[in-house]
Each structure stands twice: as C-alpha cells, then as structure tokens.
Amino acid sequence: MQDFTDLVERAKAGDEPALSAILTKIEPVLRSFFISRIGRRMDVDDLVQNTLLRVHRGIGDLKDNTRLKAFAMKGALYELQDFYRGRYTPKEALYDVFDPPHVMANDSAPEDVLDVEHALRSLSPKAREIIELREYGYKYEEIADMVGSSEAAIKMQVKRAFERMKEALLAFLLWMALPASLNT
C-alpha cells in the first residue's frame, strides 16, 4: 500500500508538485468509487473533480498526516450526499411548465383540495419510507438495494402507494363536497 505521509507533509508545506502527485494518485480511486455507487455517467466526472478540489483546498486542515485516506473519504461522501440532494432539482423546475391546467379551468387547484399529510398517513410505513427516499434523491434501483428488494418490487410498492393516496384523496374530496353542516 502506498504511504502518502511524506507527500502530505510536503503538500501542507506548500510543495505544489507533492500536492499534484497526491491528486493524481487518488483520482482513479475516486473514479472507481463513484462508478461503483452511481454508475458510469457524466456525473462521475463532476464528483471526482469536486472531491479533488475539496482535497486541494482542505489539505491544510488535515491534522494527522497519516490520515489522507479518511480525509479523502469524508470529502467523497460529502460530495455524494450533495449529489443525491440535488439530483431531482432540475426536473422539479420542469414541473412548473405543467401550470396552468387548461382543461381543468373549472376545478379547484390541488393545493386547495389535497391534504398531503392525510394522503401520506394512508401509506404503510414501508411505502412512506420508499417515497421519502425517492424524494431525498435516491433512484428506485438504489432504494431497492437499500431496503433489500428489487427495483420492480419497489416500483410496484410506489404504484400501490399512489393508489392508496388517490383513495385517500377521493375520500377527502368527497368530504369537502359535503354540505358544511354535515362536516361539523
């Protein structure tokens, strides 16, 4: 196993070639790691580069020169979590193009009629867990790995969850449609 202690000591002292050598050597480690976690996509390039930048900028904070591995791992795991949390942001922005609903002009806006908490409470704990993990940023295949199931089974659970939420929503809509005197 390669020992980075000397290179780290020199890099912290401002030796640029030593820092460059460290970055060069850990680059394939990071690439291999990110490919194993999120697949071989262009996202991997960004994650590798961002982690290298973290190491580049933060190596001065490394207290123990023998602990480069832990230091790099921490940076890589931070980057991975940032990636998950931002994964669906662009798509969510695209949702806005769905408004306003032309063919629904006479309907109430969903915000007025959909009690989200009520709908979510209709779900089994496992279904709610799956939907939360999806919204956190994990893909269904990753969730399947996390909960020890198959992607197809996870998608089926989500479908059932939608059905249950739809039923809960219909009940809520019906309740809303009742005369006020019966609701009290």
């Binding site: 769905f98 609903p101 063919v103 629904m104 309907d107 969903p110 915000e111 959909l114 939608f162």
Partner: peptide, 15 residues
C-alpha cells in the same frame, strides 16, 4: 393532468 399536479404537490410537500 390531475394526477401529475397532485403528485407534484405531494412531492414538493415531502421535499
């Protein structure tokens, strides 16, 4: 239309 909009609402609430 209704299903997608409702899901967007639920999704935003969870997020």
């Amino acid at each position: 239309n209704r299903a997608v909009r409702n899901w967007v609402h639920v999704s935003r609430h969870i997020q």
